[in-house]
């Protein structure tokens, strides 16, 4: 089983990361993933976004299964 996870970033999160697709070693949980992303990309500190794990929104902390796709979904306000 692959312990790599695929990150898909949207909107301003993709801009701050500098890419919309990213492969990472699985940090274990969404909480740990956020901490890892924030240390790797300090621009993300304090930025609000939601996680989708294998295309399901996860607002509580969750374990990240092997090979998962994790989407980083910020709110948009424009109209």
């Amino acid at each position: 089983m692959s312990q790599t996870i695929q990150i898909k970033a949207f909107g301003m999160i993709a801009e701050k990361i500098g890419s919309s697709d990213l492969s990472l070693d699985n940090p274990g949980t969404l909480k740990e993933l956020r901490a890892q992303l924030e240390s790797q990309f300090p621009d993300l500190v304090g930025v609000k976004f939601s996680f989708a794990l294998n295309k399901k929104m996860q607002l509580a902390d969750s374990e990240i299964p092997a090979g998962a796709e994790v989407a980083l979904l910020p709110p948009f306000s424009g109209g």
Partner: peptide, 21 residues
């Protein structure tokens, strides 16, 4: 509120007049 439980500030996410569209 199930999608975005925390209310963001406008300054966090720019709108069309700031980023273009």
């Amino acid at each position: 509120r199930d999608l975005y439980p925390e209310m963001p500030a406008a300054s966090e996410i720019p709108n069309c007049s700031e980023t273009g569209v």
